[in-house]
Simulated scan of single mutants.
Amino acid sequence: MTTLCNSVIFKMHRSKLANTKTDKESDFEIVKRIVNYKEKNLYAIIYDRYADLIYHRCYSFCDTDAEAKDLTQDIFIKAYLKLHTFTENVSFKSWLYTLAYRFCVNYINRNKAKRIEKLSENIDNINELKIEISDENLYSMRVSGLEKALNLITPEDRMILLLKYRDDVAIKELAENLKIGESAVKMRLKRAKYRLVDMYKSNL
């Protein structure tokens, strides 16, 4: 793993790749060259394009800058190792975001000291979800209260809500990336919105 970090991410001479035709290629074309032709140095371009974005996504799941940076590095290492699984059916950006969010969720769930307490109320019964939570309900929430509520719900709920409403990942792409049906994605979103609004109201 250390060898991979040194050779692919941290010791790459980015300046040699700047202002070239390669730098303007699409994500898919670059990934294809990395996977098919073993041009590992091109991963520097992918890293430059998305490192800051992934860092900020990680920061929303942890407490410190150092922790977010460590998660970012781990995610790019994992993404590199899984590049061969990426297909053109979804955008690389949404593929990487989904991988990052799932990595953060697993990280939180593995770390008992940082595990977020789940709601005691069981709302798995669909009868409790008769009231539809519209997107307008989410957009009308105060930012401070919304951020607090997001930090209190489960990381799984936070992941799917942020993917859908902050990163604008379409239902179809969410289904493809999460390996579940579109109806299952919609149900997860519905339940996550219900829990978010409930948490928001209880902390007003």
Rank of each mutant, 00 (worst) to 15 (best):
residue 143 V to M: 12
residue 123 I to C: 09
residue 59 Y to L: 12
residue 127 N to I: 14
residue 160 I to E: 08
residue 80 Y to P: 00
residue 6 N to H: 06
residue 65 D to W: 09
residue 76 F to S: 00
residue 132 E to F: 13
residue 151 N to E: 06
residue 58 C to M: 00
residue 133 I to C: 13
residue 73 Q to H: 13
residue 84 H to F: 08
residue 125 N to A: 14
residue 42 L to V: 02
residue 114 K to M: 09
residue 153 I to F: 01
residue 123 I to V: 12
residue 81 L to G: 09
residue 160 I to P: 09
residue 195 R to G: 02
residue 129 L to W: 05
residue 87 T to Q: 13
residue 1 M to F: 14
residue 54 I to P: 01
residue 172 K to R: 10
residue 187 M to G: 02
residue 51 A to W: 10
residue 97 Y to T: 03
residue 20 T to C: 05
residue 13 H to Y: 05
residue 130 K to N: 15
residue 186 K to C: 04
residue 55 Y to G: 01
residue 151 N to A: 02
residue 92 F to D: 05
residue 85 T to A: 03
residue 54 I to H: 01
residue 178 L to K: 12
residue 43 Y to Q: 03
residue 176 E to K: 13
residue 105 V to W: 11
residue 108 I to A: 08
residue 111 N to M: 11
residue 167 D to S: 07
residue 187 M to C: 06
residue 20 T to W: 01
residue 26 S to L: 07
residue 33 R to K: 15
residue 90 V to C: 14
residue 176 E to T: 13
residue 108 I to N: 06
residue 108 I to E: 09
residue 107 Y to T: 11
residue 200 Y to M: 05
residue 192 A to N: 01
residue 162 L to I: 09
residue 184 A to P: 04
residue 67 E to T: 09
residue 94 S to Y: 13
residue 56 H to A: 02
residue 33 R to H: 12
residue 132 E to Q: 07
residue 31 V to N: 03
residue 191 R to I: 04
residue 1 M to G: 12
residue 97 Y to P: 03
residue 166 R to H: 15
residue 194 Y to H: 14
residue 37 Y to Q: 12
residue 13 H to D: 15
residue 12 M to A: 15
residue 80 Y to R: 00
residue 136 E to L: 14
residue 104 C to E: 02
residue 36 N to K: 11
residue 161 L to Q: 10
residue 61 F to V: 00
residue 83 L to F: 11
residue 118 K to G: 04
residue 23 D to E: 10
residue 99 L to A: 01
residue 1 M to L: 07
residue 128 E to F: 08
residue 21 K to E: 15
residue 48 D to N: 15
residue 171 I to S: 10
residue 38 K to P: 04
residue 175 A to K: 01
residue 80 Y to K: 00
residue 40 K to R: 11
residue 140 S to R: 15
residue 177 N to L: 06
residue 32 K to G: 02
residue 175 A to R: 02
residue 126 I to T: 12
residue 11 K to H: 14
residue 83 L to V: 07
residue 199 M to C: 14
residue 93 K to P: 08
residue 32 K to D: 12
residue 120 S to G: 13
residue 26 S to I: 09
residue 16 K to V: 13
residue 126 I to C: 04
residue 74 D to L: 02
residue 187 M to L: 11
residue 111 N to R: 12
residue 151 N to W: 04
residue 63 D to P: 02
residue 102 R to V: 12
residue 116 I to T: 02
residue 143 V to P: 01
residue 31 V to Y: 08
residue 83 L to M: 07
residue 179 K to E: 13
residue 17 L to T: 11
residue 101 Y to A: 03
residue 128 E to T: 14
residue 50 Y to K: 06
residue 169 V to Y: 10
residue 65 D to H: 12
residue 17 L to S: 07
residue 144 S to E: 15
residue 145 G to A: 04
residue 3 T to V: 13
residue 2 T to H: 08
residue 17 L to E: 14
residue 98 T to Q: 07
residue 48 D to H: 09
residue 34 I to V: 04
residue 119 L to T: 11
residue 36 N to I: 05
